[in-house]
Design a protein around this nucleic acid. Structure first.
Length: 283
DNA sequence: AGAACTTGTCCGATCACGGA
DNA sequence: TCCGTGATCGGACAAGTTCT
């Protein structure tokens, strides 16, 4: 089983701002803009409301609500109108998919999504980011792979998946869809969570950026992530100088600015599987 | 060798807010 | 209402890892 730390959501270039954490601890990883996607921001629901006004207010760009949204990964049934048989999906293509294929990512492997977040608040009837509050990377969702569908050739795609943005427009090579399973299965995990979902409320354990970090890419991870003899380090982070042991519980990682998918073989890192099974981390 | 691509940094412009 | 200060924002550019 492999863990893939996957960067998904708004960032300073795609979207142009962090993703909001609301005053009650709930949060939203905003789908990035995609002119070719048939899905509008105004058609996506969060907490029973359209994403249109929220994304327009946070970005300061009114046109956003009418723009196409790259709803990907698509994890929550209530986020969009569904057809019978729908299951959570993740699309990958180009260099990111090549990276996953090179690492043999497939059935049973677990995507854990992270993004750049920043606290948001209501101000004069509009949403804005809390002035002075710093942005940070945090884990927000997961998808465990049940099936991988290559989209390059003439593959039969079920009707319930036809809306997915990766089936529209011109896509580069290695275009693939990852389909979630029914239930999450992690060694040592007791709870019965679905095969894909988002964390209930963003809290300290989900945070990747260290509490005393200078920049968002200064991560604090459980010590179980620390590379060692005979263990392949997290992809994109092979250089030893990126890693530093902090104490028995934590290590520090200078996270790569580039790259979307960081792959780790959990057979070599059983402690990371234990961390994933921690109650409240996922779910 | 070049492309892809996000973060960090710098710098100047702009905005919000409090005090006078 | 004006002004100064601090925060924020946008453009430009460099850095580093992997894929093509």
């Amino acid at each position: 089983m492999k863990l893939i730390l996957s960067r998904k959501g708004f960032d300073t270039s795609a979207g142009g701002c962090p993703n909001p954490v609301f005053p009650d601890g709930s949060f939203l990883a905003l789908p990035i803009p995609d002119a070719q996607s048939p899905i509008r921001y105004s058609q996506i629901q969060h907490d029973g409301r359209s994403l249109g006004p929220l994304v327009s207010q946070l970005t300061g760009n009114r046109a956003f609500s009418r723009k196409g949204a790259h709803l990907d990964p698509d994890l929550l049934p209530e986020a969009f109108e569904r057809q019978p048989g729908w299951r959570p999906l993740l699309g990958q293509h180009g260099a990111a998919q090549a990276h996953l294929a090179n690492h043999g990512v497939g059935e049973g492997d677990l995507f854990v999504f992270f993004a750049l977040f920043r606290p948001a608040e209501r101000h004069r009837g509009r949403w804005r980011f809390v002035p002075g509050a710093r942005a940070f990377h945090a884990i927000w969702g997961w998808l465990q792979v049940a099936e991988v569908w290559p989209l390059s050739s003439s593959v039969n795609i079920p009707e319930w998946a036809a809306y997915h943005p990766h089936l529209f427009g011109q896509r580069s090579t290695h275009n693939s869809l990852y389909v979630a399973g029914e239930h999450l299965a992690v060694p040592g995990m007791q709870t019965s969570l679905p095969g894909a979902g988002v964390v209930a409320a963003m809290a300290e354990p989900h945070r990747l950026t260290a509490p005393d970090a200078r920049g968002v890419t200064d991560w604090r991870l459980p010590a179980a992530f620390m590379p060692g003899p005979g263990k392949t380090p997290l992809s994109y982070h092979h250089k030893p100088e990126r890693w530093r042991g902090e104490n028995a519980d934590w290590c520090r990682l200078q996270c790569a600015a580039r790259g979307q998918e960081f792959v780790l073989d959990l057979q070599q890192y059983p402690g990371v599987a234990q961390w994933l099974a921690t109650p409240g981390l996922l779910g």
